[in-house]
Design a protein around this nucleic acid. Structure first.
Lengths: 101, 101
DNA sequence: GCCAATGGTCAAGAATTTTTGACTAATTGA
DNA sequence: TCAATTAGTCAAAAATTCTTGACCATTGGC
């Protein structure tokens, strides 16, 4: 059915919550925190996940400017996803949340 | 099917994200920010919502200690939901997020 | 007593999200 | 050349979440 898309994020935090919602995004974000992540590596580590789910999550997180996609043209030629500047700026605040969750 | 409940929130922020996920919780949280909210009032204001959805959201948010449920025994005898202390402490951090979303 | 409002519960169906599995295409090692 | 690895896409099925609509109990006004 048609979604009327009534609220263009009248609340900024609500938008952010949605950007990090879903079954795998928080974990992907967290892994990216530790260093660059790769498609198949995520698939192996996130037990119970699927190619589809990982692909969609990565694509959306990239569009939302939470992570950056980089094609590494050397040696084994692969793709790396790293936390973007925006992603990193969120981490600072997440750390504060940890102390009072 | 059985859910194995594998990760008992290895990441505190992930738990919080889940507590505020769902179609109505963010909006209920936001409304509670402005003052006590009531069941039927939410139902009227949140267009497209349902008794069921509101009831479940309120119940879960109460269990998660985000809001407090209070039976007001006077005058028209009703129930009020207000932001709990924990709820209020989160607001401070959400305000910071607003500046860099 | 009757009717409306408050604050729910429950079962069923609709909608959304996620998983499964088949398939693709380029790169690399042997 | 063959096989494996990487990084995907797509359609369909399964699982989860949400809405609909019926129902219920208490309070309050008239």
């Amino acid at each position: 059915m048609e979604e009327i898309e009534s609220d263009p994020a009248q609340c900024p935090v609500e938008g952010l919550l949605k950007q990090l919602s879903g079954k795998w995004k928080p974990q992907i974000f967290r892994m990216a925190l530790a260093g660059p992540v790769r498609f198949n590596a995520l698939l192996r580590v996130l037990e119970g996940s699927s190619k589809q789910a990982i692909a969609v999550a990565l694509k959306e997180m990239e569009q939302q400017n939470l992570i950056d996609k980089k094609v590494i043209k050397l040696k084994p030629l692969h793709i790396e996803y790293t936390l973007s500047e925006r992603g990193k700026s969120l981490v600072v605040i997440f750390r504060q949340l940890e102390h009072l969750v």
